[in-house]
Amino acid sequence: MMRILLFLGTNLAVILVASITLRLLGVEGYLRGQGLNFNALLIFCFIVGMAGSMISLFISKWMAKRSTGTVVIETPGNATEKWLLDTVEELSREAGIKTPEVGIFPAQQSNAFATGWNRNDALVAVSAGLLNRMRPEEVRAVLAHEIGHVANGDMVTLALIQGVVNTFVMFFARAIAHLVDNFLRARNDGAGLGFMGYFAVVIVAEIVFGIIASAIVAWFSRFREYRADAAGAQLAGTSAMIGALSRLKAETEMPDQMPETLTAFAITTGQTRKIMERLFASHPPLDDRIRALKEAGYR
């Protein structure tokens, strides 16, 4: 459950803060009046809901660097760092994008992530553990996978999907609060939820709908992992991509040091076995990803 809540990340926090602020300022009052104006409510929810997602997107690189301790390679300090920069530059050129920033974060687990607000202003980072234990061709495949995320515009698409989901979470939360308020008014001679009651119902409903809606976002996140694997196979070779995923599978028992808020951008979050974990997982099981690459027959 904690993974589900954290997956919503910054955008849900922005929604809650915005809801509290706008409610206290009385901005939502015009949406109620004698009845609920659904058109006005939908526009209001779209603006606030999309704002949360866009804020998360625009500060994604800053958040990633701070939360993972990623050190961006400005000038290579050794042969490994130079190889990383050269490899990312080569893969980016083949993918048709501007070379992202390249960084290393101090985690012993083999992992990597890509983030950024657009395909020409991104960050690709790998863990120190990945560099220490993977062969160069496997590291190159991991980098190709992350470049695939960037080239496919996954960060922007995920933010837009999250924004739409946020919109409907806010919309249905307020619609339910309005219905409950009307029901109580009819039963109690005009005494409805009141200020705090209405506010409490909205917040609780937003959390509940947010958890449910996160399954939709998680499904898209899993879908894009297959696409990024395919991009990695095309850029670095299928055998190297399968080798990298197999190596990651062998390390799934190690403690996961990736911040929960960045799991959707990592190359792996380990193996998920429980049904609920699979439903809300940001990544498909590694066995399924390896099988998909073998069946696709990339060279």
Rank of each mutant, 00 (worst) to 15 (best):
M1K: 10
M1L: 11
M2T: 10
L5D: 03
F7C: 00
N11M: 10
A13H: 01
I15S: 02
I15F: 01
L16E: 05
V17Q: 02
S19M: 13
I20P: 03
R23I: 08
G26V: 15
V27F: 13
E28V: 10
L36Y: 06
N39M: 09
I43K: 14
I43Q: 10
I43F: 09
F44E: 08
C45L: 07
F46L: 14
F46R: 08
F46A: 15
F46K: 00
A51I: 04
G52K: 02
G52N: 13
S53F: 01
S56M: 12
F58V: 13
S60V: 05
S60G: 09
W62L: 07
M63V: 10
T68D: 08
G69K: 08
V72F: 08
E74I: 11
E74G: 15
T75I: 14
P76H: 02
G77C: 03
A79K: 13
T80R: 12
E81N: 06
W83I: 03
W83G: 04
S92Y: 04
R93C: 06
R93M: 08
G96Y: 05
P100I: 06
E101R: 07
E101A: 12
G103T: 12
I104M: 06
I104T: 07
A107E: 11
N111Q: 12
A112L: 10
R119F: 05
A122P: 04
L123Y: 06
L123R: 02
L130C: 05
N132F: 03
R133A: 11
M134K: 00
M134T: 02
R135A: 14
R135T: 09
P136R: 14
E137Y: 09
V139E: 04
V142T: 14
V142P: 08
L143W: 05
A144T: 09
A144K: 01
E146W: 13
H149I: 04
A151N: 11
V156G: 04
A159M: 04
L160W: 12
I161Q: 07
Q162P: 02
G163A: 01
G163H: 00
F168M: 01
V169Y: 03
M170A: 11
F171Y: 07
F172D: 00
I176P: 00
A177C: 02
H178W: 14
H178D: 07
N182L: 10
F183H: 12
R185S: 09
A186Q: 13
R187L: 14
G190L: 12
G194E: 11
G194W: 13
F195N: 13
M196K: 11
Y198C: 05
F199A: 08
V202K: 00
I203A: 05
I203F: 07
I203R: 04
V204M: 14
A205P: 06
I211K: 02
I212D: 01
I212A: 14
I212M: 14
A215V: 07
W219N: 14
W219K: 15
S221A: 14
R224Y: 02
E225P: 04
A228G: 00
A231C: 13
T238Y: 02
S239C: 06
A240I: 04
G243D: 10
T252N: 09
P255W: 15
D256A: 13
Q257N: 05
M258Q: 09
E260I: 09
L262H: 12
T263H: 11
F265N: 15
T268I: 03
T272P: 07
T272A: 13
K274C: 02
L279G: 05
L286T: 06
L286C: 03
R289P: 03
R289G: 02
A292M: 00
K294Q: 12
G297I: 12
